[in-house]
């Protein structure tokens, strides 16, 4: 099994991104997803800089994938998505059907991200015919569904599971970070820069429930499937995705590498911001 580092879901300044990817270049990760998937206003790196960074990671032995924006509303965002598909020297991870269509029409292979709803074998087979090489299993589905999907998976398609990180649960037109600062979205003053792992939303009983990340809403808890690595290997899962966080990502990758190699695994709970969960895997509420 391979380990991937998902796209950075937060708005980090350029220096932080570069330092992070220096660490990843030296890590045990096999695949690195680059690019902006949440908000088109986040421009720490432009496309050519992402590509240049990707080449460095390639030189360090990593497979590189470029991811596209998840919620494409404006014509300018659609153009930016097309440019990624046109110019990427790497495989592209399509985050929605627009990118899938554009890539398939160009005759290019592609991967699909966690927000593409592939809930049944017929959907997976259809996309495989169009050039799908790897898919991320949808976050809200269970082990039982994964096992059934693996039974009918087409040849040549790899399965990736989101194994560690705060889960991206929803996308909106509205920016919740701007709203938290009583700012209009059009004049958000890039406040996401102040929250390197989002802003926790708590209930009035002080339970950490969700995490606001611009137009994206995440789980407050960190999904942790390190205990399921052996089971996932049995199910034929090819790739485990670690979602980047500002601290400890290198150690988390190491821990998953140890789990894959059947070596002792350190406790990961202390590396989660506010606790871990694995309810979706067990067919229960995700927060469990």
């Amino acid at each position: 099994m391979k380990i991937s580092v998902g796209p950075v879901l937060y708005y980090w300044p350029e220096d932080q991104l570069r330092a992070f990817y220096d660490e990843i270049a030296a890590s045990a990760a096999d695949i690195v997803y680059l690019g902006e998937t949440v908000c088109s206003k986040r421009r720490s790196l432009n496309l050519s800089q992402w590509i240049e960074l990707g080449r460095k990671l390639q030189d360090a032995g990593k497979e590189v994938v470029l991811s596209t924006l998840t919620l494409i509303e404006a014509a300018s965002e659609q153009s930016a998505m097309r440019r990624i598909c046109d110019d990427s020297p790497f495989l592209v991870e399509a985050s929605e059907q627009g990118a899938i269509d554009y890539l398939a029409q160009a005759g290019k292979h592609f991967a699909s991200g966690p927000s593409v709803n592939i809930y049944n074998p017929r959907s997976l087979q259809l996309l495989a015919k169009l050039g799908l090489k790897r898919w991320v299993f949808p976050l809200e589905l269970s082990r039982k569904t994964l096992a059934a999907m693996q039974q009918e998976r087409p040849d040549g398609v790899e399965t990736e599971v989101f194994a560690w990180g705060r889960m991206p649960l929803a996308y909106a037109a509205r920016c919740f970070t701007a709203r938290a600062h009583d700012l209009p979205k059009d004049d958000c003053q890039l406040r996401c820069l102040d929250y390197s792992q989002g802003q926790v939303l708590r209930t009035r009983e002080d339970e950490a429930f969700l995490c606001l990340n611009g137009i994206q809403t995440q789980s407050a808890k960190t999904c942790n499937l390190i205990g399921e690595v052996a089971d996932m290997r049995e199910l034929g899962v090819d790739v485990l995705r670690i979602s980047p966080q500002p601290r400890h990502t290198g150690r988390i990758i190491q821990a998953f590498r140890a789990a894959i190699d059947d070596e002792p695994v350190p406790a990961l709970e202390p590396m989660a911001a506010v606790g871990t969960c694995d309810g979706y895997w067990r067919g229960e509420a995700g927060m469990q």
Binding site: L71, S115, E140, L141, Y171, A172, A173, T217, A285, M287
Partner: peptide, 21 residues
């Protein structure tokens, strides 16, 4: 719905059941 329909898992995160499933 303030979220993009079909891509909102908030309900299943809290309850195990969402509009999708």
């Amino acid at each position: 719905c303030v979220m993009v329909e079909g891509r909102c898992l908030l309900s299943s995160y809290a309850t195990g059941q969402s509009p999708n499933t």
